[in-house]
């Protein structure tokens, strides 16, 4: 039990660390905090504008008060103000999050299932043909940068074969509410989801394969085998429950990697999601937006970590049996 609580506390500390770093970065770095907080530079800002921003940002107040205001803004849901977009960062993220989640969530599910299935299958006969082939392809795919995978997909499936549309999540003029719009959306989602899945599956495969192989030397596997349990049932009913825990415990981090990968994928496929928001903010030096996105991503990771830990506590036979016994 205590190991889960420790895990949750670590995730919470990591989240708070990100929030503090977000506050400290523009104030600590050698650049002018007004430029770093608005994203404008001396060429754009007149003296008067600079002064008005300086007071508007509260930079004339003592640091502790600034930190209090900043925390109130983060937890109050504003997440800062983007002077580039002239809007609350929170509202910008709220507008772009649905598109990102439509790519990231299916990619998480597909890559997890795919890694589980291939990893457990490969570990069934370590160093056999299937294992060698799958591990070699995982190593090969793991070396492909996400942007290369995305560009090859676009060039091949959209431009050369013309099978799938390129750009955004809807074709122009199609109403997303209709059935036609629904299938149009699916067609737009296939390539980004496939790219993100391709980018994140190899490392998961390697992990589950190596754990499953270690586990298959255990005595319970030998016992199950001697009772005649074999194949899928052995892998999924007997081995997976014993190796799935670290795999599930990584879901939170995995989400972070997915959202990071989504920055590249959305940029390549011109999807107006949170990744595109980050990518544009990098180009515009829109620092408040960047920070808001990082805060939201960290909050997501914290939430998912807490959730998976609760699931793991409920699923942990040791804890479950103990509470039954009482």
């Amino acid at each position: 039990m205590s190991k889960y609580i420790r895990h949750i506390l670590i995730a919470l500390t990591a989240f708070l660390a990100i929030i503090i770093v977000n506050f400290a970065l523009p104030r600590m770095l050698p650049g002018d905090p007004v430029f770093l907080l608005t994203g404008f530079d001396a060429e754009v800002l007149s003296r008067e504008l600079y002064d008005s921003y300086y007071t508007a940002l509260g930079l004339d107040k003592p640091l502790a008060e600034q930190f209090g205001d900043y925390l109130a803004d983060v937890f109050g849901g504003g997440l800062g103000f983007s002077y580039r977009h002239n809007a609350d960062v929170a509202s910008l993220i709220a507008d772009s999050l649905p598109a990102t989640l439509q790519i990231v969530l299916p990619a998480i599910v597909i890559s997890t299932l795919l890694a589980m299935w291939t990893g457990l299958t490969a570990a069934r006969r370590p160093r056999g043909i299937a294992d060698t082939a799958m591990t070699a392809s995982a190593a090969l795919l793991g070396a492909v940068p996400t942007f290369l995978a995305g560009m090859i997909m676009v060039v091949f499936f959209s431009f050369t074969l013309g099978w799938l549309p390129y750009g955004n999540l809807n074709s122009p003029g199609v109403d997303p509410g209709t059935i036609e719009g629904f299938f149009d959306r699916i067609a737009h989602l296939i390539l980004p989801i496939a790219t993100l899945t391709l980018a994140t599956t190899p490392s998961k495969y390697m992990m589950i394969r190596s754990n499953a192989e270690k586990a298959s030397e255990e005595k319970y596997v030998l016992y199950a085998r001697s009772k005649g349990v074999d194949g899928n049932r052995l892998s999924f009913r007997h081995i997976f429950p014993n190796v799935g825990q670290p795999f599930l415990a990584m879901t939170g981090l995995n989400l972070g990697a997915m959202l990071g990968g989504s920055v590249v994928v959305e940029t390549i496929f011109s999807v107006n999601g949170m990744g595109m928001l980050v990518s544009q903010a990098v180009g515009d030096l829109d620092y408040p937006t960047l920070q808001g996105c990082l805060t939201v991503i960290s909050a997501f990771i914290l939430g998912v970590t807490v959730l998976t830990d609760i699931v793991l506590i409920l699923a942990d036979p040791e804890i479950r049996r103990k509470s039954h016994a009482r």
């Binding site: 670590i10 995730a11 500390t13 990591a14 660390a17 990100i18 770093v21 977000n22 970065l25 523009p26 770095l29 650049g31 770093l36 939170g252 981090l253 972070g256 990697a257 959202l259 990071g260 990968g261 920055v263 980050v278 903010a281 990098v282 030096l285 620092y287 960047l290 920070q291 996105c293 990082l294 991503i297 960290s298 990771i301 970590t305």
Partner: peptide, 16 residues
């Protein structure tokens, strides 16, 4: 540090 989203954090800090 193992809990911090590596790529997003790298992007933001690198931008700064």
């Amino acid at each position: 540090f193992a809990m911090i989203p590596k790529l997003p954090a790298t992007i933001v800090v690198a931008a700064f």
